Amino acid sequence: MHQGNFSLKEEIREYWTKRAETFDQSPGHGIRPGAERDAWAALLDRHMGPAPGARHVLELAFGTGEVTAVLLGLGCDVTGLDLTEAMLLRARAKHANAKHVRLYMGDAEDTREPAGRYDAVVSRHLVWTLVDPAAAFRDWFRVLKPGGRVVIMDGDYVRLSPVGRLRLAVSDWLSARQGATGPAVDRATHDSILSRVHFSGGLRPPALRAMLEDAGFTDFRVEKPSGPHAAQRQGAPLRQRLRIGVWNSFVLSCAKPGA
């Protein structure tokens, strides 16, 4: 691996190691049981599509295992890879008694999984961090069965609309006024990493689709995660509701031809 890429990946690993303890407390990371989990399940079920028997899913960058819980609830057989040991330990503890799940440390850009094994490759909040997404997408194409689908849940964490900036400003003002504190985020490290990944200018569906097409994928579907966002807003204080959906989140899925 190129030394520059290796160094950046080590920084990414260290950043998420520090975030692991409070990861589930951040809006958009933790998934509450009930309406929110059900909304994510409905969305994933649509995008993964049917499969004979239980779906065999490769989940990449599973974090603390929140999406893992949704996939298991759908009856999937899950293999998960994450770059960070701290996340792995939390996810394994969360799913210690679950069947049909195997969680390991691994690199989403070079999974080293067998070719043609999986019905779906699923990720949330991963693609914006990829150093070499073209290599990752080629590998995801390789590990999928013909007809298998990639499901990407992500967003543009760089470019904000004027309304989005206003919503964040009001949210910050309310938090300060109410003395509310959230999980500490090392913004300087976050921004430094963001400036050096492939999608440093922001991740949007058209550019992402073009790269996935180059890797061989077809049958694209894109939508906003409106259902999960609506469920997240239920019962949340105004300062949090203002932040939900502000980052141009999307779900994009596509298929490996040949089913």
Rank of each mutant, 00 (worst) to 15 (best):
V170W: 10
V170N: 04
V170P: 03
V170R: 05
S171I: 08
S171T: 03
S171A: 15
S171L: 09
D172T: 10
D172F: 12
D172S: 12
D172A: 15
W173E: 13
W173V: 07
W173I: 08
L174M: 13
L174F: 07
L174N: 11
L174Y: 09
L174D: 06
S175Q: 14
S175D: 14
S175I: 09
S175R: 15
S175Y: 09
S175M: 15
A176I: 10
A176N: 10
A176T: 08
A176W: 10
A176E: 14
A176Q: 13
A176V: 12
A176R: 15
A176K: 14
A176C: 03
R177W: 13
R177H: 10
R177C: 03
R177G: 07
Q178R: 13
Q178H: 11
Q178P: 00
Q178A: 12
G179A: 07
G179E: 03
G179Y: 07
G179V: 04
A180G: 01
A180I: 12
T181K: 11
T181Q: 13
T181D: 06
T181N: 01
T181W: 00
G182N: 05
G182L: 09
G182D: 04
P183K: 02
P183D: 01
A184D: 02
A184H: 08
A184M: 07
A184R: 11
V185H: 02
V185E: 10
V185S: 01
D186K: 08
D186Y: 03
D186T: 03
D186V: 05
D186W: 06
R187L: 14
R187Y: 09
A188K: 12
A188C: 05
A188I: 06
A188F: 03
A188T: 13
A188R: 10
A188M: 09
T189I: 05
T189S: 13
T189V: 10
T189P: 01
H190N: 09
H190C: 01
D191M: 12
D191T: 00
D191G: 06
S192Y: 11
S192C: 11
S192Q: 13
S192A: 15
S192V: 00
S192P: 02
S192R: 15
I193P: 02
I193G: 01
I193M: 05
L194Y: 01
L194H: 10
L194W: 05
L194V: 04
S195T: 04
S195H: 06
S195N: 07
S195E: 07
S195L: 08
S195V: 04
S195W: 00
R196S: 03
R196N: 04
R196H: 11
R196V: 07
R196C: 00
R196P: 06
V197K: 04
V197P: 00
V197C: 09
V197Q: 03
V197E: 04
H198A: 10
H198W: 07
H198Q: 07
H198L: 08
H198Y: 14
H198K: 07
F199V: 02
F199W: 15
F199I: 04
F199N: 00
F199E: 03
F199C: 08
S200W: 05
S200D: 09
S200H: 15
G201T: 03
G201A: 12
G201M: 09
G201N: 10
G202W: 01
G202A: 09
G202R: 07
G202C: 11
